[in-house]
Structure formats: structure tokens, C-alpha cells
Design a binder for these strands. Structure first.
Lengths: 216, 216
DNA sequence: ACCTCTAAGATAGAGGCACTATCCAACCAT
DNA sequence: ATGGTTGGATAGTGCCTCTATCTTAGAGGT
């Protein structure tokens, strides 16, 4: 198929597709001659992946390029998933491994998770240190509760991804799943906060304005 | 004090402060005359708030402006907090209230949260619908587990904010707290995912590369 | 009083990102 | 042959968050 058809199949404009080609996100089509190139359904799949990473997971072009490079480099799935996670969940730059925190170590023990240094663990350590620096206390009971909850999700999520055969599908499922689950948690947290605020501020002496409508 | 001193006290460059003044985030100092203005410690506080919202919570200038307008408008704390939450946790535009979902309703009942329409609840409903559209299943048991965990955090977080007297302090505590807690959850989720992946992919037949190092 | 130095305010520019529009030569269908 | 479409290259757009420059006026020292 030609660029235009590719565009119609995926919903990306031809101009955007050209841009992705320039940026090396999408491999060039088989060049028939100077003004004609042929694209396959591999291109369709790849473009759908790019679109999801860009507009569902909200990754930048640079981040997407990094993921695709790894995917095409044929690295093991575990390495690839670790990278996708780092980018989708914004765990920060890998290089620097933070010092261990007692809190994170305790969580690993409590949940019986493997005691290995992952990007995620480094990010957690860094974050706990940062919260401490900001004077935000983290009771262990809270971490226990939290880790129990996320432990449940993680299994689900992984089950979905391991079912995928194609690498593009694997990344798509993993990235979208990670993003949506993390956003779900965020929204539940928001609702919990709002509920508590309504109960304690509206009930306990504050003004009686409800939380919802405040701006047309 | 003058702009330069304000700059030194807060760490923002004079140029940035001028920019914030132009954008209406920082109220103008008391103008002594054409080339001299006096700033107070209210300005210091406000600038620290702006800095935190910008560089800790990663809000845009536009979002910060919205929060400060409300704060200076003297709206009730509950309304203000609802708005801060919407922006910090990216709950999306308010206006549109999504249709209710059985899942969200069940969560509200399970946790005994007040059954009112908040921005957070709308966002949760929208998100659940979106996940369903993407074919991601959400067992009720998972939502139960999650909401139990976030329920624990929400109390903590609120306790810290209600202690604040000054509105700028309230917003600062609330925004930073919301952001850091939500990021904490994210990082725990990441660690849970990584742990599961390591256990199932490394142990269960996949290649044996560890999750950590893959890029210099 | 005079000269210099600095601050305030206004305006313009910079740099990054993700596109988007314009050109041009080539080539397929008619 | 010829008009319209395509691929590829290059340049421009719009937004955002600063940052640099310019002008003018008052402050401080002598």
C-alpha cells in the first residue's frame, strides 16, 4: 500500500507519517522508485503502536524512538518491558542507582518480591528519600497497604502482555496497560482524597460548598 | 525588598520573576516610582508556591494561574482543594460529568464514601469507561484492594493540609502532598510489575537477562 | 549639581517540540 | 502527452517557558 492508504488505515495524517519516517520511528517503505514506495501491514502495526505511545501513553518522539530501537534490537522481553516501564511510568533516568531505603527494603520483604536492583526499585528509593526531604512521613503500614494493592494489579497486567506474540503487540499491550492502570490508581486516589475532604471539611465545621462545580 | 533580593531568597532568576509578574502569577510589588518597586514576604511565599507548583508538581503557567486566581478569589477551601486536585492529578476538564459506572458506584459503597458527584468521581467514571473500551477488564476485587489502599493515604494527606493557616501554605502542602503520594503509588506499582515480570519471565522459561541495566 | 550605576518595565528573541505546509521532480493513469 | 498524485526534502507554524536587550528614571556618591 501507499502512504495515503497507510494514513487512512491508521488515522494519522500523511504529514505526520512523513514526520515519523523522518524521525526514524517508522521504517521507510520498500522504495519502488523515486516517487513511489510500498508499505506493508508491518507498517500499519508499527504506526498504530506509535500512535498509542504518543497519544494514549503521552510519550515524546524521543522516548518512542528509544523503545522502538530496543524492540528492533531484539533485546530480551524482560529488558524491553523494563525500558517501557521506565518511560511510561516516568521512573527517571536509569544510570544512577539510589541508596537503599529501609522502607523500600521492607516492602520487598513484605511482599516476597525478588530482592534485586531494578529501575523501579531505584526510582522508589529515590522517591522515598525525596518525600522524606520534603518532610512527608511514610508509615510502614501505608506502604504495606499500597504494595498489597499494586501487587494485585501487577499480575493481571503481566498476564495480558505475556499473551502477545508480536513485539509491537507486546509493547502496545504493556504500555497501554501500564498507563491505564497507573491512571486508574491516580483517579481512585483522587476520589479517596475528595471523599475524605468532603467528610472532614464539609461535615466538621468548614463551609458547606460541595466539591464539584466551581468554574463554568 | 527589591526584585533582586526576592530572586536571591527564592532561587528564581530575576528574569523568571519578571516573567511571572507579566503573566500575573505574582502580584506586582508596591511601586515606589517608575524604576523602583518594593516586595514583601508575601511575595516570597507566593514565589515559593509558584516554584513548587511549577517544578515539583510540574504544572503549566496556565494551570498555576488558575489555582492562584481561585486562591485570591477567596473561595472555600473545599472548592480550592478540589481544583488543586483536578490540576495536580490531571483529572481532566471539569464541565463534562461522565455517565456513572457500576464499578465506581460499587467502590463508593464499599468504602463508605459520600455518594456525591465530584470531579474525581467523574474522572474515575470516564477512565473506567475508557479502559473498558480498550478491552481492559477490571475485577471488582481489584478495585476493592486499590480503594482500600488509597483510602489510607487520603486521610494522612488531608491531615497535613488542614493544619495550614495561610492559603498559599495550604495549596503548597496539598499540591506537593498529592503529587508525591501519587508518584509514590506509581513507583510501587512499577516495582510490583517489575517483580512479577522477573519472577514469571526469568523463572518461567524466558531469557535470563536481569531487568536493570540495558543502556549505558 | 553631576555623573555613574542599577532597577523596573516593555519588547523582542531563543530554543525545544510536534507537527504542517510548500516545493519539486517523477511517474502512473487517461 | 499530460494532468494529477506521490515521495522526499526543506522550511515554516504554533505553543510554551523562559532569557536578553533596550530604554528610562531615580539613587548614591562626590
Amino acid at each position: 500500500m501507499q502512504l495515503k492508504e497507510l494514513s487512512e488505515l491508521t488515522g494519522s495524517t500523511p504529514a505526520s507519517i512523513k514526520y515519523y519516517l523522518r524521525e526514524g520511528l517508522l521504517p521507510p517503505g520498500e522504495s519502488v522508485h523515486a516517487t513511489r514506495a510500498r508499505y506493508s501491514d508491518r507498517h500499519v502495526k508499527r504506526l498504530q503502536l506509535i500512535h498509542a505511545l504518543r497519544h494514549v501513553a503521552h510519550l515524546t518522539i524521543e522516548e518512542i524512538r528509544g523503545i522502538l530501537l530496543l524492540a528492533d534490537g531484539g533485546v530480551p522481553h524482560l529488558t524491553l518491558l523494563a525500558h517501557v516501564q521506565r518511560v511510561v511510568l516516568h521512573l527517571g533516568d536509569d544510570g544512577s542507582r539510589a541508596e537503599h531505603t529501609a522502607a523500600a527494603d521492607a516492602v520487598v520483604r513484605m511482599r516476597n518480591w525478588p530482592d534485586v536492583d531494578s529501575d523501579a526499585r531505584g526510582a522508589l528509593n529515590r522517591h522515598i528519600l525525596q518525600m522524606r526531604a520534603l518532610g512527608i512521613d511514610l508509615p510502614l503500614s501505608l506502604l504495606d497497604e499500597y504494595s498489597k494493592a499494586v501487587n494485585a494489579i501487577a499480575g493481571l497486567d503481566l498476564a495480558a502482555t505475556t499473551a502477545e506474540e508480536d513485539v509491537d503487540d507486546l509493547i502496545l499491550t504493556a504500555a497501554v496497560g501500564m498507563h491505564m492502570h497507573s491512571q486508574l490508581m491516580l483517579k481512585l486516589l483522587a476520589l479517596a482524597q475528595a471523599s475524605h475532604a468532603i467528610q472532614s471539611l464539609a461535615g466538621g465545621g468548614g463551609p458547606s460548598t460541595p466539591a464539584g462545580p466551581n468554574k463554568g
